[in-house]
């Protein structure tokens, strides 16, 4: 199944958001996820199944300040 993650087209097995994050080696507590432009609350990671054509944004905190990060 094909989805878009952070602007990149990727092909994955059907998974929940939680399973997908873990498969990428991402600690779900340390990120925020936007699914088709809506924030996905952390409580819904385990129950939300990814669908064909979904667009995900996975972000985290990086160094930055009064400058462009």
């Amino acid at each position: 199944m094909n989805i878009t993650t952070n602007g990149e087209a990727v092909s994955i097995d059907p998974l929940t958001v939680q399973q997908y994050l873990v498969s990428l080696g991402i600690d779900p507590r340390r990120v925020a996820v936007e699914l088709n432009l809506d924030i996905l609350p952390k409580a819904q990671y385990e129950t939300t199944r990814l669908k064909e054509g979904d667009a995900l944004e996975i972000v985290h905190f990086v160094g930055g300040g009064a400058v462009r990060g």
């Binding site: 990727v10 340390r30 905190f61 160094g63």
Partner: peptide, 19 residues
Amino acid sequence: ITVAVRRVNISDRSKESLL
């Protein structure tokens, strides 16, 4: 302390995270 919000690099997970 201020931090920026950026996309996670999904192809290279080797980098340490700020947090």
